[in-house]
Computed example of a mutant assay.
Amino acid sequence: MRRLLRFIGHRLYTTWATFWFVFPFVVTYPLQVLLSRQPRWHRYLHGLNRWWSMLFIRMWGVPVSVEIRGRVPAGQPVLYVPNHSSYIDIPLLFKAIPGHLNIMGKSSLAKTPLWGPIFGRVYITVDRASAVSRGRSLVQARQTLEAGRSLIIFPEGAIAPKPSEELLPFKDGPFQLAIATGVPLVPVTMPYNHRFMPDVKGLRVRFSKLRIVIHEPIPTTGLTLADIPALKERVARIIASEFDPAAAGIPPASTLRAQPRPAAQPAAKA
């Protein structure tokens, strides 16, 4: 009976979370399409996306802790480099980081129904298997920073298979970009997103606390490309310092299948 109640509770919560993820988007979809058509309106569309993110995270009812460890230089863009562990990384970043942000995401995001074309017009997409796409995305990213707009890039390039346990090797691109433009790097840790909505087949949602730590900015002025390995190691160490070993790994799916009985022990010989 306890397993049945837990299974029903998980399914009900998944339905609730899905509704509050989809409903605000459906209601605002015509306005999002309109605002995505003109670059001068993208600031308002990002504001709408931040409102959407804050609304459904609030309606999920999960406790969210936002910790800001250092002050971002006033009037200067920065490059945020967070770990990547879940489908909700982008909404949580949009909720926690104010301002008119840009973000770089994988090109497949632009192919998702309805929201994909909007994302592709407003933010930066990259196909990491294509050198042309990588080069184009870095040009767009540099233009973003030079225009005074902060940017988010996931240095791992993909969702890590062992979240809160191991980071994927960092790509050089974000660090080359920060050094070339002279903007500070801001490491960001999100240690529990995978517990709430893991990267698994289908949709799996579990009630879990969420936490985001925005670390102190790291200056890049005066650094050269030779400093990239040490810079990547420093950022990785800072991000991993806020991982919770108790939260490592993907939580199991709820199931009604009976637990296997332990094998019978052979009778002792007289």
Rank of each mutant, 00 (worst) to 15 (best):
123 Y>N: 07
111 K>M: 14
108 S>D: 15
113 P>T: 14
138 L>C: 00
149 R>G: 06
114 L>Q: 12
150 S>I: 06
130 S>E: 06
129 A>M: 14
141 A>N: 10
132 V>I: 12
116 G>A: 03
136 R>Y: 02
145 L>N: 01
149 R>C: 08
107 S>D: 15
111 K>L: 12
135 G>C: 02
123 Y>D: 10
148 G>P: 04
140 Q>V: 01
145 L>T: 02
120 G>Q: 09
112 T>K: 15
119 F>T: 07
142 R>Q: 14
107 S>I: 14
112 T>A: 13
106 K>V: 06
147 A>Q: 08
140 Q>N: 05
152 I>H: 02
130 S>W: 06
152 I>M: 03
129 A>S: 15
116 G>L: 04
125 T>F: 02
140 Q>I: 00
138 L>A: 01
130 S>N: 11
145 L>G: 02
128 R>A: 05
132 V>R: 15
132 V>P: 06
119 F>W: 08
141 A>Y: 05
139 V>H: 06
141 A>P: 07
143 Q>M: 03
126 V>L: 06
134 R>T: 12
124 I>P: 01
146 E>L: 11
131 A>C: 04
124 I>R: 00
126 V>P: 01
136 R>F: 00
108 S>M: 10
124 I>D: 01
110 A>N: 11
109 L>W: 14
146 E>S: 11
114 L>Y: 14
136 R>V: 00
147 A>L: 04
148 G>K: 04
152 I>W: 04
141 A>R: 09
132 V>S: 14
106 K>Y: 03
113 P>L: 09
116 G>I: 02
118 I>K: 09
117 P>V: 08
134 R>S: 14
131 A>D: 04
131 A>L: 05
115 W>K: 13
127 D>K: 08
117 P>Y: 08
133 S>P: 05
119 F>I: 12
122 V>A: 12
128 R>K: 09
107 S>K: 13
106 K>M: 13
109 L>Q: 13
129 A>G: 10
139 V>D: 04
122 V>G: 10
116 G>S: 04
114 L>T: 13
146 E>V: 04
108 S>T: 15
121 R>Q: 11
138 L>N: 00
123 Y>P: 03
145 L>K: 00
138 L>D: 00
148 G>Y: 01
152 I>A: 04
116 G>M: 03
152 I>N: 03
147 A>G: 10
131 A>P: 03
134 R>V: 12
123 Y>W: 15
111 K>V: 04
106 K>D: 07
143 Q>Y: 01
150 S>C: 10
121 R>F: 12
112 T>G: 14
